[in-house]
Every structure is written in C-alpha cells, then in structure tokens.
C-alpha cells in the first residue's frame, strides 16, 4: 500500500536526525543553568533594592545619646538636646525617646523588669535629616557641644559604609556568577557540538560529498543548539520565576523576610532576555566549535 505523497506540498525535512537521549541531558543542563541565572538575577535585583533601602534609612537619620549632667534629669537633658538639634540646618525632625521607649530598647539585654527608676540612664533622640541637604554628624555634635550638652552623635556612617561594601560584594559575586554560567553554557554546547559531529559523522560526510560547505554543516548544528538553548532557557527561567513568586508571596506579612529580599513584581521580568541570550551563546559556540572540528577533517 502506498501513501499519498504530493511533491508540490513537500517541504525539506531537517537534515540532522532528531535528537536522542543525549539531547535530553543537554536540555536538562541548559534548563538548570537558566534556572540558576534567572534566580540569581531576581535575587540580585531584590538584594540591590534592600541595600539601597537600608542605606537610605541609615544615611537619612542619626541618633543622639544624651547623658544628663549637673541638675538636669534625663528627660530634661533630652528635651534640651531635641531643641538644639532641631535648630541645626539640615535636620528635618528630632524626637526624644521617653523612658518607656528607652526601656523597651534595652529589654532584650536587661529583661522585662527594666532598670531602677533612680538610675540615671542616657536618653536617645532620634533625628531625621533633610534628604535634600542632610546635616552632618559633626555639625550636630558641634551644636550640642556649644550648648553644653554631654552627648554622642551616631550618624550611622560606619554602618552605611559596611552596607555599601556588602552590596558591592554581592553585585560583584552576581556578575561573576553570571559570567560563570555563560562560560559553563558555552562549554556544554561546545562539548555537545563535538559529540554531535562525531555521532553524525556519516551524515556530515554525505553532506560534504554532496557539496556542502563547512559553514552549511555548522549552520545545522548552530540552529539545533540555539533552538534547544532557547527552549531549555525558557523552561528554566519560567521555573525560577515561579520560585521567586513563591518566595515573594511567602514573605508577605513577614517584615523581616520582606526587608531581606524585597522582590518586586517587575523583578520577575529580569529573566526574560535569558532564553534569547542563551540561544545566542549556543549559536556562536556551536558555530565556532563546528567550524574548528570540520577544518580538521579531510
């Protein structure tokens, strides 16, 4: 029995045989790389946002520790400090913490009972700085000293610098991870191309004898691996986005987790270019590898 075949509707079939088990292994590895890269990108953006938020909070505020001196009670000393600090140019607001709030801050170290009421504990004044032209710690310190108030000013610059360094380290690590993933992808594709050329040696030979150029043969592998990388990259990226959504939703309502990894919905678009990028890396690597291997054959 012969099947109906209409030559006028014929369209060329792929010249390379369909994939086998090796292709599935390759797809899995590329999908895993895409998953890692996508997750790293989302985490990197969220981390960057967290660093920026912490830095803004720290550099936009200062804390004044007031020690009562002479006949001043702690509350009186704090009120005087508040008045002085509020008058410093670049200070938006100064707010003394009363005894109860101070006790609450110390509770983790001294327990819920608090300190004896007659113990002269220092008072804290929380200072909000003008974001457009913030006052420096030195200016506040100078003003307090001029008013004869015994106080220390912590403008959080030490913490801000540490957070900046930590943020920079995370960014460098993220970039290094990205370069590593691209390099691994290139190596995997190069290996797969060599394997493919060896496994399809008879096909390649037949094509060469029919007049195919090295470029023609290389294009077959280039197209196959670019398509595979795009598909696997899409699958890995989609899975990473799902995981990121899960983390975001799981963190909602938990201020600590949200503050550590504040994923925004827009961050989820970060992996979008990865399948295309993966396809590009795969295409270039496959072509270079195939051309190099074929150049060594008769």
């Amino acid at each position: 029995m012969s099947l109906a075949f209409d030559p006028q509707r014929w369209w060329p079939a792929p010249l390379l045989p369909k994939g086998d088990g090796r292709d599935w292994t390759l797809l899995f590895v590329v999908a895993a790389l895409s998953f890692l890269a996508s997750l790293a990108a989302v985490a990197g953006l969220a981390g960057q946002r967290a660093t920026l938020g912490w830095r803004t909070e720290l550099t936009g505020s200062a804390t004044v520790v007031v020690r009562p001196s002479g006949t001043d009670t702690p509350d009186e000393a704090a009120a005087r400090a508040e008045e002085v600090v509020a008058g410093v140019p670049g200070v938006a607001q100064a707010l003394p913490l009363d005894a109860a709030k101070t006790q609450a801050l110390l509770a983790p170290w001294i327990g819920p009972g608090g300190l004896p009421p007659d113990l002269p504990t220092p008072r804290l004044v929380a200072v909000q700085l003008d974001p457009t032209a913030p006052a420096s710690g030195a200016a506040i310190r100078q003003a307090l000293k001029a008013a004869g108030i015994d106080a220390d000013v912590d403008d959080h610059s030490r913490w801000a610098a540490q957070i900046m360094r930590a943020g920079l380290a995370v960014e460098i690590a993220g970039a290094a991870l990205f370069v590593l993933i691209v390099a691994v992808l290139g190596a995997v594709i190069a290996f797969a191309t060599r394997e493919g050329l060896a496994a399809r040696r008879e096909v390649v030979e037949a094509l060469h004898l029919a007049g195919a150029t090295d470029g023609f043969v290389a294009r077959l592998f280039q197209a196959r691996f670019a398509r595979a990388a795009a598909q696997a990259g899409l699958a890995g990226g989609a899975l990473a986005v799902l995981v990121a959504v899960f983390i975001k939703l799981a963190g909602t309502g938990d201020e600590q987790l949200t503050a550590l990894l504040p994923i925004a919905w827009t961050d989820l678009a970060a992996p979008a270019p990865f399948p295309l990028l993966g396809a590009l890396v795969a295409a270039v690597t496959a072509r270079l590898t195939a051309m190099s291997v074929l150049a060594g054959r008769p």
């Binding site: 060329p12 010249l15 369909k18 094509l207 007049g211």
Partner: peptide
C-alpha cells in the same frame, strides 16, 4: 532519517 524525496533533493538543497 530522510525520505526518498528528501534524499533525492539533497544536491539542490545544498
């Protein structure tokens, strides 16, 4: 892996 028609078409295709 190619049909009779595809095998015969190899030369023109290349």
């Amino acid at each position: 892996h190619l049909s009779v028609f595809d095998n015969a078409a190899l030369g023109p295709r290349i």
